[in-house]
Design a protein around this nucleic acid. Structure first.
Lengths: 209, 209
DNA sequence: GTCTATAGAGAGATAGAC
DNA sequence: GTCTATCTCTCTATAGAC
């Protein structure tokens, strides 16, 4: 494989980025198994064997897609969580970042939902390999005194699934159930309304609703 | 295929039920593509070709699994929604039935999440073929005068995704992110807490929170 | 009803030319 | 860097014996 950090000719760099982009779209739409390298190659406009030049095998391509999408989210979350703002405001900002990021990159919603559901019991899903930094980030917060004083009415797993589940489902799954209608969850209005509701739910779950 | 309603010998009936049960478990765990008929057969204790005697092909088996699981949910929802109780109480009962049914049959959470995410744009997912009765049920309610008077602060799509998404994600996906820990979303305590929160979210979304 | 055996398609990986 | 050609494995579907 050719690592992203290795120096590539401009053309090669474009090819690699195009592969990543099309692979993200197709993995999100059809899953790991359901996506053929043939289709990725065709979408990019190259031959299947050429993908191997950049990514040793299918799994490696998939991991690169996850790393790319999750890396962007992690960066934005760090920006809002690692500030001197009051904790409660940082949490709200993080929730907004979460909703907005998923809204701008809806493929991530499907990728994460797929990873969640595909996980084998006892066997770490590919997602978990990328999730360490997120855990560190949250752990840093939870470890702080400030968090200990927030009256949490309910376990963090419940909070997380309500917030994450609502947004992932809204963006990643609702279009399935309201097909070809005028309903687009990614439209400005619907996403605004969704963000508002998730913020209210967050407040409610944190005990100050 | 041998329809469920056709008269079968007791033994054949048991075999058919066993195939359905193992197929539900495996389809939920690995998805349609990821489940091999070989594995279903092995789990039941028969040979792969024998499955064909009951279900013409893999897709037909999958449809039968969906119909079985969703049929049970529909029946319970009808029981609580088609009563003379005040509408607001019926909605709460329906939400409770939803949470409890998924809690008792967590395979359904994964099946529904998979169907939602697998849906091709422009192409009806298998789930939609089974969902007609649910739509009819809700349409009957929404058409009634009583519903028109409920102050709905937000669109039904948002309400549905918040409620459905939270529960599906909690049951179907959380175990992935909190692996091998002492966390079991299906335990009585956690499911009770989750039901409580979803009922609160419902109230909030319906404007009387 | 349940089995054995096999055909046939699909798709990932690999070798090597240009 | 990108290609053609091929190997190989997996899994569904089918035919037909018992």
């Amino acid at each position: 494989m050719v690592a992203a950090t290795v120096e590539l000719t401009p053309k090669a760099h474009r090819t690699r980025a195009a592969i990543l982009q099309e692979a993200e779209r197709l993995f999100a739409a059809h899953g790991f198994r359901g996506t053929r390298l043939e289709d990725v190659a065709q979408a990019v406009g190259i031959r299947r064997a050429s993908i191997v030049y950049y990514f040793a095998d299918k799994r490696e391509l998939y991991d690169a897609v996850l790393a790319d999408a999750l890396g962007g989210l992690l960066q934005r979350l760090r920006e809002v969580l690692l500030t001197p703002e009051p904790l409660r405001e940082r949490v709200d900002s993080a929730v907004s970042v979460w909703v907005d990021y998923i809204g701008e990159r809806p493929t991530l919603a499907r990728l994460v939902l797929r990873e969640s559901v595909d996980a084998e019991p006892g066997e770490a899903p590919a997602l978990l390999a990328h999730i360490g930094p997120f855990v560190e980030l949250v752990r840093g917060l939870v470890g702080s005194e400030a968090v200990a004083r927030v009256p949490v009415a309910i376990g963090p797993a419940h909070i997380a699934s309500a917030i994450a589940g609502a947004t992932l489902f809204f963006v990643g799954a609702m279009p399935t159930f309201v097909p070809d209608l005028e309903f687009d969850p990614l439209s400005r209005d619907h996403l605004d309304a969704h963000r508002r509701e998730v913020l209210r739910i967050t407040a409610r779950l944190l005990g100050d609703g």
